[in-house]
Design a protein around this nucleic acid. Structure first.
Lengths: 347, 347
DNA sequence: CGAAGCACCGAAAACGTTTTCAGAAACGTA
DNA sequence: TACGTTTCTGAAAACGTTTTCGGTGCTTCG
């Protein structure tokens, strides 16, 4: 029969077999073959079966390119990220990649490395590839410039919201996360709660702090040490800040760290000072960065921002927009508490 | 002039303007327009200029789909990864993404999540999209099943080599890395060197150990503690092994950890025991996982496997194969030493 | 028995390019 | 003036599909 391959081995996806070959093999016209394979009703059952069998026998695989050309839909979307190496884009990207069923939609990955020029380049390339939609994922959860309203395809912004409110943006809930962290500590019976966090220039740091302070205020409390300890996103800062904190107020019974990295530094110093976690001081982190949180001593309770789900929702919203139901505004995806052993009720 | 957009704003990449429009606008035929824009010689300079100007004025962007259909080249490649979340695929992916200039080639990202079914699905999709080539990046540096020889496009395997020697695979140099680590410690004047590493089922663990032992043997040395300490890829194991090691042989003067995670555990215990690093014991890690290595106390000397470069080379080899120069066999990409403060010469 | 209706099929146009090839225009030469 | 060359241009085919629409043959009904 087929001359190229031995029987039994997986049929080679032969690039050269076209619908014409299938049609000829089945003894029908290309038009009929097309209709038969696409489940169009106007073809006799017997004929359809013959065509399908022919297609299988020749291991026909339709040329998506040709299909796109006529249907004006490529079944592709562009994923424009500004920092691939950053740990935030990856989960989002995974969620998005997974929300588009692989049968329907494939994603073009582009890393602009936080460079506007490169981004423009990629954008041009994607548009000339006729993607059906775009997801733009930013490096930091701060506002970024909109790609503009003149694009021929729908766009969804993830993580970093667009500065144009008419665009649709999905963001993490940093305020809610901060609130959630403090709430958990309160539930554990802690009252003297400190907050050590990162660079105050980051919106994320401000938002988390705001959520934390709000929740504290609801209980009539102030943060231990009097104020929020802003600094840097590093273990070293976590260590330094903790030392200062312990000097200034000895009775602290919980520390909310603005990131898991910082939390690692906090734990390190507490351990050094022989202060038991969680019995004397409870510690909670932020991000649920597995390698840091799960390996910590003790394993770290933390806030997970649900980035993967954010990616999935972004994909869903984009699909909706591609179907003609665009959205706009900023949608916030809630985080969740992940409890490990660094927090526990008092006594 | 143009009715859709205000003057001054970036020209909207109008999806609907076609070469015909440009041709009509410039007063030539589509054939001539095409040749003018593609730099074909057989068109008068004056005509070419007119066409180019028309194209710019209408902000024409050629339909890549139509081009692919006739040139039989899509300018796309598939990136089939088995674990996106794993930290190994990302740098490789970045290197590859960056080696293909964005103007020429775009990459389809597919995450098979280490599932053969899903992989097959993605493969079908990619082939029907008529990618020009494929990069397959594995989750672990162990051999994986070949995609087969019957594919209509060239394939390059990265990180996890194919089990078919006729395929081209690119892998990291774990043996060389182990050797390099020990060599560095020797140069620092250390002689009583222990090796604490991860799961012995991983080829990577075995290879790194082999390299280390070879280099030690060249100096007539055995590892401190008598043998390699295999265990798990975790901080906890690093801590436990270090405690056992210190009990069994008190005079160790260097520890080579099989991963940065393990190294963190090692450092932790040394710190606890008030054993100074690097003056009394030098510590070297493996992987150069920034967040762990750079934040360690002291910052960790480690081996970087150059994954990004591996990705770049994979892209180059694939390009070569697409030009008709396929390769085969396993190519090893050397790692490099990254010195920080956890190692230093004795005395 | 003729007309109408129905089920099925295929010819052809379309999508937006590239490329081939024939012809037109301009020019130099005999 | 006639002819050959060179330079430029455009008509048309091609890529592999989908979709429209007209046609064929069969059934049904008056």
């Amino acid at each position: 029969m087929s001359r190229g391959s031995t029987a039994g081995e997986p049929a080679p996806a032969n690039r050269n077999v076209t619908l014409r070959d299938v049609a000829r093999f089945a003894g029908v016209s290309v038009a009929t073959a097309s209709k038969a394979l696409n489940g169009q009703p106007q073809v006799r059952a017997e004929t359809r079966a013959r065509v399908i069998q022919a297609a299988e026998q020749l291991s026909f695989s339709p040329n998506t390119i040709a299909q796109s050309l006529i249907t004006q839909r490529t079944g592709t979307v562009g994923l424009l990220t500004s920092d691939l190496e950053g740990r935030f884009s990856i989960p989002i990207l995974m969620g998005a990649e997974d929300a588009f069923g692989s049968d329907q939609t494939s994603v073009f990955l582009c890393d602009a490395r936080d460079d506007a020029i490169r981004e423009k380049h990629h954008l041009r390339a994607l548009l000339s590839r006729r993607v059906d939609g775009l997801i733009v994922v930013g490096a930091r959860p701060d506002t970024r410039a909109s790609l503009g309203r003149e694009l021929p395809v729908p766009v969804v912004y993830a993580y970093a919201p667009s500065d144009d409110p008419r665009d649709l943006s999905l963001v993490t809930d940093n305020v809610g996360g901060g609130r959630m962290a403090v709430d958990h500590l309160l539930r554990c019976g802690r009252r003297r709660i400190a907050h050590i966090t990162g660079d105050p220039d980051y919106g994320a740091a401000q938002d988390r702090a705001r959520g934390a302070l709000e929740r504290l205020a609801e209980e009539g409390l102030e943060p231990a040490g009097g104020e929020v300890w802003f600094g840097m996103w590093s273990e070293a800062w976590g260590r330094g800040a903790t030392r200062m904190l312990l000097e200034r107020c000895t009775d602290v019974d919980a520390i909310f760290a603005g990131s898991d990295e910082i939390a690692r530094g906090v734990l390190d110093v507490l351990h050094e000072e022989r202060i038991d976690v969680p019995s004397r001081v409870a510690v909670i982190g932020f991000d649920n960065w597995k390698v840091l949180a799960a390996n910590a001593r003790p394993p770290l309770t933390t806030i997970d921002l649900n980035l993967e789900q954010l990616g999935r929702i972004a994909a869903q919203r984009l699909s909706a927009a591609m179907e003609g139901n665009p959205g706009s505004g900023v949608e916030t995806v809630p985080g969740r508490l992940v409890t490990r052993e660094s927090t526990a009720p008092l006594r």
